[in-house]
């Protein structure tokens, strides 16, 4: 179809992602924000909510983190500033998510459309900041704000033979925490109930509106953390620029759609997706294929999974 062998493309993608230690490091740093956003989405999906606003929540996290670093970067010792920036990012992301949640709970605006609109608004806000108040002196370019000093970058942690970016551990920890919260806490149990039947959950006495807003806030917080990682991560650009979220939120939705409710599957699939994203950069070079091929593969995988799941359910019900 494309005048190129799919097997060859596949080999190139994998080799491009994992062929060398440096490449693995890049995959790892692409993996971290995906993990964080997917962890957040596990929470909202548990409650049956379509938090498409996750993309904007990542952006707001990046904005808040940048704001905190700009304000505190030279006041506090670097670790303190970075820590506070992380907290600010969590705050920014959850506030943005709560807005989508409030639109849904009190304004009757479906979270899909509320979230999408908020994505665009988050985009404009970022552009405004990059070009306006936070612009570089004399320049009005969407290239980004002044990069932060290396002392404000997240460290890499050596795990021979790799230098693993610190944010990866953050992502895995978040995934673990979400997994525990969903399985072990009343919050998680309530979300499971809400996701299965909002009405029954309400009649069981679960404060459904409150728990749904909490789910939004939790997801937004984790997505905000993803934004924080995109600003401060070891291999990031260390600056705020428009489109910094780069579709990580949407990609994370695909991850969760494919992984279902399993955190472990989320970890694996997001890793695979990060590898595909990075690995597909090799395609244009060797095969004259556009690097969006990675996106095609990712979404095709999920589409096939959805169709197969439907097909299987149909066959099972036929037999039964």
């Amino acid at each position: 179809m494309l005048g190129a062998s799919p097997v060859e493309a596949y080999r190139l993608i994998v080799a491009g992602a994992l062929g060398q230690p440096e490449r693995v490091a890049f995959v790892l740093s692409a993996w971290a924000p995906l993990l964080l956003a997917a962890a957040g989405l596990l929470v909202t999906f548990a409650a049956g909510l379509w938090n498409i606003g996750v993309e904007g929540q990542v952006l707001l996290g990046a904005v808040f983190a940048t704001g905190a670093l700009r304000a505190l970067g030279h006041l506090l010792p670097p670790p303190g500033a970075v820590l506070l920036a992380g907290l600010a990012a969590v705050l920014g992301g959850s506030l943005w998510a709560l807005l989508a949640g409030a639109l849904r709970a009190y304004g009757n605006v479906n979270e899909i459309f509320g979230g999408l609109g908020l994505n665009f608004i988050a985009g404009s806000l970022t552009v405004y900041l990059v070009l306006g108040p936070w612009a570089r002196p004399g320049i009005a370019s969407t290239s980004g704000t002044l990069p932060f000093a290396p002392s404000l970058w997240l460290p890499t942690i050596p795990v021979p033979p790799l230098e693993v970016p610190g944010e990866v551990f953050l992502g895995i920890a978040a995934m673990g925490a979400v997994s525990v919260a969903l399985r072990g806490t009343y919050f998680g149990l309530h979300l499971a109930a809400i996701g299965r039947s909002l009405r029954a959950a309400h009649l069981r006495g679960i404060p459904t509106t409150r728990e749904m807003l909490r789910a939004f806030a939790a997801c937004g917080g984790l997505a905000g953390l993803a934004g924080f990682v995109l600003v401060t991560g070891a291999h990031s650009r260390h600056q705020l620029f428009p489109l910094i979220s780069g579709g990580d939120g949407f990609l994370a939705i695909l991850v969760v759609l494919l992984a279902g409710r399993s955190a472990l599957a989320c970890i694996l699939i997001s890793g695979a997706f990060a590898a595909i994203s990075m690995g597909s950069l090799q395609l244009p070079l060797a095969m004259q294929l556009d690097s969006s091929m990675g996106g095609v593969i990712q979404s095709l995988l999920v589409l096939c999974a959805i169709l197969l799941r439907g097909l299987r359910a149909r066959l099972v019900s036929r037999e039964g």
């Binding site: 919050f187 499971a192 299965r196 039947s197 069981r204």
Partner: peptide, 21 residues
């Protein structure tokens, strides 16, 4: 709630004061 087990229902009916089930 369809899809939840009896244990999960029992947990839901229990005290909600704590964080962990």
């Amino acid at each position: 709630i369809p899809g939840l087990t009896l244990t999960e229902h029992a947990a839901l009916a229990g005290r909600h004061g704590t964080l962990f089930v």
